[in-house]
Simulated assay, not measured.
Amino acid sequence: MELVLSSEILDVRDGTHDSPKYIEKGYPLVTSKNLKQGVICFEDVKYVSEEDYNKINNRSKVDEGDILYSMIGSIGNYAIVTESPNYAIKNVALFKFKDENLYNKYFYYVLNSPFLENQIKSQQKGGTQKFVTLKILRNLKIPLPPLDTQKKIAAILDEADRLRQLNKQLIETYDALTQSLFLEMFGDPVSNPMGWERKSMKSLMKIVRGGSPRPIKNFLGGKNPWIKIGDATKGDDIYIYSTKEHIIDEGLKKTRLLPEGSLIFANCGVSLGFARIIKFQGCIHDGWLAFLEFDENVIDKVFLLKALNSVTKYFRDTAPDGTQPNLNTKIMGDYQIILPPIDIQRKFVDSLKIIEQQKDQTQTALQKSEALFNSLLQKAFKGAL
Protein backbone atom coordinates (compact mmCIF):
# COMPACT_ATOMS: atom_id res chain seq x y z
CA MET A 1 0.00 0.00 0.00
CA GLU A 2 1.30 3.47 -0.92
CA LEU A 3 2.58 5.59 1.99
CA VAL A 4 2.48 9.39 1.89
CA LEU A 5 3.50 12.06 4.38
CA SER A 6 0.59 13.59 6.26
CA SER A 7 1.75 17.11 5.28
CA GLU A 8 1.26 16.22 1.61
CA ILE A 9 -2.45 15.47 1.97
CA LEU A 10 -3.43 17.30 5.16
CA ASP A 11 -3.25 20.82 6.54
CA VAL A 12 -2.04 20.17 10.09
CA ARG A 13 -2.39 23.02 12.60
CA ASP A 14 -2.96 23.40 16.30
CA GLY A 15 -5.00 25.57 18.61
CA THR A 16 -3.80 28.38 20.83
CA HIS A 17 -1.02 27.83 23.39
CA ASP A 18 -2.03 30.93 25.34
CA SER A 19 -4.27 30.92 28.39
CA PRO A 20 -7.17 33.25 27.62
CA LYS A 21 -9.30 34.64 30.43
CA TYR A 22 -12.22 32.34 31.17
CA ILE A 23 -15.71 33.78 31.58
CA GLU A 24 -19.02 32.38 32.83
CA LYS A 25 -20.77 32.49 29.46
CA GLY A 26 -19.24 32.75 26.02
CA TYR A 27 -17.69 30.50 23.40
CA PRO A 28 -16.49 27.00 24.43
CA LEU A 29 -12.72 26.40 24.43
CA VAL A 30 -12.08 22.74 23.62
CA THR A 31 -8.91 21.15 25.05
CA SER A 32 -7.49 17.63 25.09
CA LYS A 33 -9.63 16.64 28.07
CA ASN A 34 -12.78 17.30 26.03
CA LEU A 35 -11.90 14.67 23.41
CA LYS A 36 -13.32 11.34 24.58
CA GLN A 37 -14.03 8.11 22.70
CA GLY A 38 -14.24 9.75 19.32
CA VAL A 39 -16.54 12.63 20.30
CA ILE A 40 -16.24 16.12 21.78
CA CYS A 41 -17.54 16.26 25.35
CA PHE A 42 -18.73 19.68 26.53
CA GLU A 43 -19.65 18.68 30.11
CA ASP A 44 -16.73 20.47 31.79
CA VAL A 45 -15.72 22.88 29.03
CA LYS A 46 -14.60 26.44 29.83
CA TYR A 47 -15.70 29.58 28.01
CA VAL A 48 -13.88 32.53 26.42
CA SER A 49 -14.97 35.92 25.11
CA GLU A 50 -15.93 36.61 21.50
CA GLU A 51 -12.68 38.57 21.10
CA ASP A 52 -10.54 35.61 22.20
CA TYR A 53 -12.69 33.22 20.17
CA ASN A 54 -12.08 35.23 16.99
CA LYS A 55 -8.38 35.64 17.76
CA ILE A 56 -7.87 31.89 18.21
CA ASN A 57 -9.92 31.06 15.11
CA ASN A 58 -7.79 33.36 12.97
CA ARG A 59 -5.05 30.81 13.58
CA SER A 60 -6.98 27.55 13.74
CA LYS A 61 -10.62 27.74 12.73
CA VAL A 62 -12.41 24.40 13.03
CA ASP A 63 -14.76 23.34 10.23
CA GLU A 64 -17.20 20.49 9.80
CA GLY A 65 -15.36 17.37 8.63
CA ASP A 66 -12.07 18.28 10.36
CA ILE A 67 -10.48 15.95 12.91
CA LEU A 68 -9.22 17.05 16.33
CA TYR A 69 -6.37 15.23 18.09
CA SER A 70 -5.06 15.68 21.64
CA MET A 71 -1.39 16.74 21.69
CA ILE A 72 -0.63 16.86 25.41
CA GLY A 73 -1.40 14.63 28.40
CA SER A 74 -3.86 12.06 27.09
CA ILE A 75 -2.19 11.83 23.69
CA GLY A 76 -4.23 10.06 21.05
CA ASN A 77 -7.76 11.09 22.00
CA TYR A 78 -9.47 12.34 18.88
CA ALA A 79 -12.82 13.31 17.41
CA ILE A 80 -14.31 14.00 14.02
CA VAL A 81 -16.23 17.28 13.71
CA THR A 82 -19.73 16.27 12.59
CA GLU A 83 -21.55 19.60 13.03
CA SER A 84 -20.80 23.21 12.25
CA PRO A 85 -18.63 24.24 15.23
CA ASN A 86 -18.98 27.32 17.43
CA TYR A 87 -15.90 26.74 19.58
CA ALA A 88 -12.16 27.38 19.61
CA ILE A 89 -9.36 24.93 20.47
CA LYS A 90 -6.33 24.92 22.77
CA ASN A 91 -3.41 22.43 22.76
CA VAL A 92 -5.31 20.33 20.24
CA ALA A 93 -4.11 19.39 16.75
CA LEU A 94 -6.38 20.18 13.83
CA PHE A 95 -6.33 18.02 10.70
CA LYS A 96 -7.92 19.74 7.70
CA PHE A 97 -8.39 17.89 4.44
CA LYS A 98 -6.78 19.54 1.42
CA ASP A 99 -6.64 16.51 -0.88
CA GLU A 100 -9.83 15.03 -2.36
CA ASN A 101 -8.11 11.66 -2.53
CA LEU A 102 -8.18 11.32 1.29
CA TYR A 103 -11.53 10.41 2.90
CA ASN A 104 -11.85 11.97 6.36
CA LYS A 105 -13.61 8.99 7.98
CA TYR A 106 -10.86 6.69 6.66
CA PHE A 107 -8.19 8.93 8.20
CA TYR A 108 -10.21 8.99 11.43
CA TYR A 109 -9.67 5.24 11.69
CA VAL A 110 -6.04 5.48 10.57
CA LEU A 111 -5.45 7.66 13.66
CA ASN A 112 -6.80 4.80 15.79
CA SER A 113 -4.56 2.18 14.19
CA PRO A 114 -1.42 0.67 15.78
CA PHE A 115 0.42 1.70 12.60
CA LEU A 116 0.06 5.40 13.42
CA GLU A 117 0.00 5.01 17.21
CA ASN A 118 3.45 3.39 17.09
CA GLN A 119 4.83 6.20 14.91
CA ILE A 120 3.56 8.83 17.34
CA LYS A 121 4.54 6.99 20.51
CA SER A 122 8.11 6.49 19.32
CA GLN A 123 8.55 10.25 18.80
CA GLN A 124 6.51 11.83 21.62
CA LYS A 125 8.30 14.27 23.91
CA GLY A 126 8.27 15.13 27.60
CA GLY A 127 8.66 13.39 30.94
CA THR A 128 5.63 12.95 33.19
CA GLN A 129 3.53 15.15 30.88
CA LYS A 130 3.90 13.68 27.40
CA PHE A 131 3.23 15.73 24.27
CA VAL A 132 3.57 15.60 20.49
CA THR A 133 4.67 18.43 18.22
CA LEU A 134 3.22 19.66 14.94
CA LYS A 135 6.44 18.51 13.26
CA ILE A 136 5.70 14.92 14.35
CA LEU A 137 2.10 15.09 13.16
CA ARG A 138 3.09 16.64 9.84
CA ASN A 139 5.54 13.86 9.09
CA LEU A 140 3.42 10.80 9.74
CA LYS A 141 3.45 8.11 7.08
CA ILE A 142 -0.15 7.51 5.99
CA PRO A 143 -1.27 4.39 4.06
CA LEU A 144 -3.23 5.72 1.10
CA PRO A 145 -5.21 3.20 -0.97
CA PRO A 146 -7.58 4.37 -3.73
CA LEU A 147 -10.52 6.51 -2.58
CA ASP A 148 -13.13 3.80 -3.17
CA THR A 149 -11.07 1.39 -1.05
CA GLN A 150 -10.84 4.00 1.73
CA LYS A 151 -14.64 4.32 1.75
CA LYS A 152 -15.06 0.55 1.85
CA ILE A 153 -12.66 0.27 4.79
CA ALA A 154 -14.43 3.10 6.64
CA ALA A 155 -17.84 1.47 6.11
CA ILE A 156 -16.65 -1.89 7.50
CA LEU A 157 -15.03 -0.24 10.51
CA ASP A 158 -18.12 1.94 11.08
CA GLU A 159 -20.24 -1.17 11.51
CA ALA A 160 -17.72 -2.84 13.84
CA ASP A 161 -17.41 0.37 15.84
CA ARG A 162 -21.21 0.69 16.09
CA LEU A 163 -21.35 -2.73 17.74
CA ARG A 164 -18.71 -1.95 20.36
CA GLN A 165 -20.24 1.48 21.10
CA LEU A 166 -23.62 -0.17 21.73
CA ASN A 167 -21.99 -2.48 24.27
CA LYS A 168 -20.26 0.46 25.97
CA GLN A 169 -23.57 2.35 26.19
CA LEU A 170 -25.29 -0.67 27.70
CA ILE A 171 -22.60 -0.94 30.39
CA GLU A 172 -23.11 2.75 31.20
CA THR A 173 -26.84 2.07 31.48
CA TYR A 174 -26.22 -0.70 34.03
CA ASP A 175 -23.95 1.63 36.03
CA ALA A 176 -26.65 4.31 36.06
CA LEU A 177 -29.22 1.69 37.11
CA THR A 178 -27.09 0.74 40.12
CA GLN A 179 -26.92 4.36 41.27
CA SER A 180 -30.67 4.85 40.69
CA LEU A 181 -31.47 1.71 42.65
CA PHE A 182 -29.36 2.89 45.60
CA LEU A 183 -31.04 6.31 45.67
CA GLU A 184 -34.51 4.80 45.30
CA MET A 185 -33.98 2.44 48.23
CA PHE A 186 -31.93 4.65 50.55
CA GLY A 187 -32.09 8.26 49.34
CA ASP A 188 -29.15 10.64 49.50
CA PRO A 189 -26.82 9.37 52.29
CA VAL A 190 -25.72 12.93 53.16
CA SER A 191 -29.12 14.61 53.58
CA ASN A 192 -30.75 11.31 54.68
CA PRO A 193 -34.32 12.15 53.61
CA MET A 194 -35.56 8.70 54.69
CA GLY A 195 -34.41 9.23 58.26
CA TRP A 196 -32.19 6.13 58.59
CA GLU A 197 -30.18 5.62 61.76
CA ARG A 198 -26.68 7.07 61.42
CA LYS A 199 -23.42 6.25 63.17
CA SER A 200 -19.86 7.46 62.83
CA MET A 201 -17.61 5.24 60.72
CA LYS A 202 -15.09 5.00 63.59
CA SER A 203 -17.75 3.53 65.88
CA LEU A 204 -18.40 0.72 63.39
CA MET A 205 -14.97 -0.22 62.12
CA LYS A 206 -11.24 0.23 62.22
CA ILE A 207 -9.93 2.71 59.63
CA VAL A 208 -6.28 2.53 58.60
CA ARG A 209 -4.10 4.20 55.99
CA GLY A 210 -1.65 2.48 53.67
CA GLY A 211 2.07 3.08 53.51
CA SER A 212 4.57 3.46 50.70
CA PRO A 213 8.13 2.13 50.70
CA ARG A 214 10.25 4.72 48.89
CA PRO A 215 11.59 4.88 46.30
CA ILE A 216 9.08 2.25 45.20
CA LYS A 217 11.23 1.13 42.25
CA ASN A 218 13.69 -0.33 44.76
CA PHE A 219 11.01 -2.62 46.19
CA LEU A 220 9.31 -3.92 43.04
CA GLY A 221 9.76 -7.43 41.68
CA GLY A 222 8.63 -9.58 44.61
CA LYS A 223 5.58 -11.74 45.21
CA ASN A 224 3.43 -9.44 47.38
CA PRO A 225 0.59 -7.75 45.44
CA TRP A 226 1.03 -3.96 45.26
CA ILE A 227 -2.42 -2.41 44.77
CA LYS A 228 -2.67 0.68 42.55
CA ILE A 229 -5.63 2.62 41.18
CA GLY A 230 -4.86 1.23 37.74
CA ASP A 231 -5.66 -2.27 39.01
CA ALA A 232 -9.22 -1.19 39.75
CA THR A 233 -10.19 0.99 36.81
CA LYS A 234 -11.09 -1.69 34.27
CA GLY A 235 -13.87 -4.23 34.37
CA ASP A 236 -15.35 -5.14 37.75
CA ASP A 237 -16.51 -2.16 39.83
CA ILE A 238 -16.79 -4.05 43.13
CA TYR A 239 -13.78 -6.37 43.32
CA ILE A 240 -10.08 -6.38 42.47
CA TYR A 241 -8.79 -9.83 41.55
CA SER A 242 -5.10 -9.20 40.83
CA THR A 243 -2.41 -6.53 40.58
CA LYS A 244 0.04 -5.67 37.85
CA GLU A 245 2.93 -5.04 40.25
CA HIS A 246 4.33 -6.85 43.29
CA ILE A 247 6.82 -5.84 45.97
CA ILE A 248 9.56 -7.73 47.77
CA ASP A 249 9.28 -8.86 51.41
CA GLU A 250 11.53 -6.01 52.55
CA GLY A 251 8.85 -3.56 51.43
CA LEU A 252 6.30 -5.08 53.84
CA LYS A 253 7.97 -3.21 56.70
CA LYS A 254 6.96 0.13 55.15
CA THR A 255 3.49 -0.56 53.84
CA ARG A 256 0.25 -2.13 55.07
CA LEU A 257 -0.55 -5.74 54.23
CA LEU A 258 -4.30 -6.40 54.15
CA PRO A 259 -6.17 -9.69 54.35
CA GLU A 260 -8.32 -11.00 51.53
CA GLY A 261 -11.79 -9.41 51.53
CA SER A 262 -10.64 -5.99 52.77
CA LEU A 263 -12.53 -2.92 51.57
CA ILE A 264 -10.19 -0.18 50.34
CA PHE A 265 -10.95 3.45 49.48
CA ALA A 266 -8.87 5.96 47.49
CA ASN A 267 -8.46 8.96 49.77
CA CYS A 268 -6.75 11.58 47.60
CA GLY A 269 -6.36 13.20 44.20
CA VAL A 270 -8.56 12.67 41.17
CA SER A 271 -9.35 9.11 42.31
CA LEU A 272 -10.79 10.12 45.69
CA GLY A 273 -13.91 8.08 46.43
CA PHE A 274 -12.85 5.06 44.44
CA ALA A 275 -13.65 1.91 46.48
CA ARG A 276 -13.07 -1.80 45.89
CA ILE A 277 -12.99 -5.12 47.78
CA ILE A 278 -9.77 -7.09 47.28
CA LYS A 279 -10.00 -10.83 46.57
CA PHE A 280 -6.45 -11.57 47.75
CA GLN A 281 -3.95 -10.59 50.43
CA GLY A 282 -2.24 -7.42 49.27
CA CYS A 283 -0.45 -4.18 50.14
CA ILE A 284 -1.79 -0.63 49.89
CA HIS A 285 0.13 2.63 49.50
CA ASP A 286 -0.65 5.86 51.35
CA GLY A 287 -3.23 6.90 48.76
CA TRP A 288 -5.60 4.22 50.11
CA LEU A 289 -7.62 3.84 53.31
CA ALA A 290 -8.89 0.44 54.45
CA PHE A 291 -11.99 -0.37 56.51
CA LEU A 292 -11.51 -3.39 58.77
CA GLU A 293 -13.11 -5.33 61.63
CA PHE A 294 -16.75 -4.33 61.12
CA ASP A 295 -19.77 -6.51 61.85
CA GLU A 296 -21.38 -7.58 58.56
CA ASN A 297 -24.60 -8.32 60.44
CA VAL A 298 -24.78 -4.56 61.01
CA ILE A 299 -23.40 -3.18 57.74
CA ASP A 300 -22.98 -5.22 54.58
CA LYS A 301 -19.60 -4.82 52.86
CA VAL A 302 -20.97 -4.27 49.36
CA PHE A 303 -23.61 -1.86 50.69
CA LEU A 304 -20.82 0.08 52.44
CA LEU A 305 -18.84 0.24 49.20
CA LYS A 306 -21.79 1.62 47.21
CA ALA A 307 -22.74 4.01 50.01
CA LEU A 308 -19.22 5.46 49.91
CA ASN A 309 -19.28 5.65 46.10
CA SER A 310 -22.50 7.65 46.26
CA VAL A 311 -21.02 10.47 48.37
CA THR A 312 -17.81 11.14 46.45
CA LYS A 313 -18.75 14.79 45.90
CA TYR A 314 -19.37 15.26 49.62
CA PHE A 315 -15.93 13.86 50.42
CA ARG A 316 -14.28 16.08 47.82
CA ASP A 317 -15.96 19.12 49.33
CA THR A 318 -14.99 17.98 52.84
CA ALA A 319 -11.31 17.32 52.07
CA PRO A 320 -8.84 19.94 53.37
CA ASP A 321 -7.87 22.63 50.87
CA GLY A 322 -4.69 21.96 48.95
CA THR A 323 -3.34 21.13 45.55
CA GLN A 324 -5.34 17.90 45.64
CA PRO A 325 -8.17 16.77 47.93
CA ASN A 326 -6.95 14.45 50.66
CA LEU A 327 -9.00 12.63 53.30
CA ASN A 328 -7.36 11.47 56.51
CA THR A 329 -8.54 8.75 58.88
CA LYS A 330 -10.09 11.33 61.26
CA ILE A 331 -12.34 12.85 58.58
CA MET A 332 -13.45 9.40 57.47
CA GLY A 333 -13.92 8.23 61.04
CA ASP A 334 -16.16 11.18 61.87
CA TYR A 335 -18.39 10.67 58.82
CA GLN A 336 -21.92 9.66 59.83
CA ILE A 337 -22.96 6.78 57.58
CA ILE A 338 -26.57 5.69 57.18
CA LEU A 339 -27.51 2.30 58.68
CA PRO A 340 -30.70 0.90 57.16
CA PRO A 341 -31.81 -2.48 58.58
CA ILE A 342 -29.47 -5.24 57.40
CA ASP A 343 -32.25 -7.10 55.59
CA ILE A 344 -32.86 -4.03 53.39
CA GLN A 345 -29.12 -3.67 52.75
CA ARG A 346 -28.98 -7.31 51.66
CA LYS A 347 -32.03 -6.90 49.44
CA PHE A 348 -30.14 -4.12 47.65
CA VAL A 349 -27.05 -6.32 47.30
CA ASP A 350 -29.14 -9.19 45.88
CA SER A 351 -30.63 -6.84 43.27
CA LEU A 352 -27.16 -5.52 42.54
CA LYS A 353 -25.93 -9.06 41.82
CA ILE A 354 -28.56 -9.43 39.08
CA ILE A 355 -27.48 -6.15 37.50
CA GLU A 356 -23.81 -7.17 37.74
CA GLN A 357 -24.53 -10.51 36.07
CA GLN A 358 -26.10 -8.72 33.12
CA LYS A 359 -23.23 -6.26 33.06
CA ASP A 360 -20.67 -9.11 33.07
CA GLN A 361 -22.35 -10.61 30.00
CA THR A 362 -22.17 -7.24 28.27
CA GLN A 363 -18.51 -6.87 29.29
CA THR A 364 -17.80 -10.19 27.58
CA ALA A 365 -19.66 -9.03 24.48
CA LEU A 366 -17.68 -5.77 24.56
CA GLN A 367 -14.38 -7.66 24.71
CA LYS A 368 -15.40 -9.67 21.67
CA SER A 369 -16.52 -6.58 19.75
CA GLU A 370 -13.28 -4.78 20.68
CA ALA A 371 -11.27 -7.76 19.45
CA LEU A 372 -13.24 -7.82 16.19
CA PHE A 373 -12.74 -4.09 15.66
CA ASN A 374 -8.99 -4.26 16.36
CA SER A 375 -8.60 -7.27 14.08
CA LEU A 376 -10.38 -5.49 11.23
CA LEU A 377 -8.33 -2.34 11.93
CA GLN A 378 -5.05 -4.23 11.56
CA LYS A 379 -6.20 -6.01 8.41
CA ALA A 380 -7.44 -2.75 6.87
CA PHE A 381 -4.04 -1.09 6.88
CA LYS A 382 -2.25 -4.20 5.71
CA GLY A 383 -4.45 -4.33 2.63
CA ALA A 384 -6.15 -7.52 3.84
CA LEU A 385 -9.76 -6.30 3.83
Rank of each mutant, 00 (worst) to 15 (best):
G222C: 02
M185V: 04
D18H: 11
Q119V: 03
K90Y: 01
T128I: 12
E296A: 07
G127A: 13
G282K: 11
V190G: 15
L252N: 03
I40R: 06
L5Y: 14
I299L: 15
K152F: 07
L29R: 06
D249V: 06
L10N: 07
K130M: 00
F381N: 01
Q281P: 13
K90W: 01
V12F: 12
N57G: 09
S19N: 11
L305A: 11
T329D: 01
I247W: 08
D300T: 05
K21H: 08
K90G: 14
G235R: 08
I338K: 12
N326P: 05
A232D: 00
D321A: 10
I216K: 07
K152M: 08
F115M: 04
S74D: 06
L163A: 14
F219H: 02
D14A: 03
Y335M: 13
E100L: 10
S242L: 09
E83H: 12
N167Y: 10
I284D: 03
F97A: 05
K168V: 08
W226H: 04
Q336E: 14
K90L: 02
L170V: 14
D249E: 14
E50D: 12
K202T: 12
F348K: 10
V12M: 11
G251R: 01
E64Y: 06
I40M: 04
N297Y: 04
I354E: 15
D249F: 07
S212H: 04
E64G: 10
N218A: 07
T31E: 02
T318Q: 12
C41E: 07
I278N: 13
V48K: 13
K125M: 10
K301M: 10
D14V: 04
G15C: 06
H246M: 09
H285M: 09
L327H: 06
K253D: 10
I229S: 07
T233P: 00
I354V: 15
K217C: 02
R13M: 06
F381E: 01
S70Y: 03
P146W: 02
K98R: 15
Q324I: 05
I284G: 09
F107A: 01
I136P: 13
I355C: 08
E50Q: 14
P143M: 05
E293S: 14
K353C: 03
Y22C: 02
G73I: 03
K254N: 15
K25M: 05
L116T: 01
K121L: 01
E260P: 02
A93V: 06
I331P: 01
K228Y: 00
A365M: 10
L35M: 05
K223N: 14
G269Q: 01
R138T: 07
P28R: 11
A155N: 10
S242K: 15
R256K: 15
D350W: 02
I72P: 00
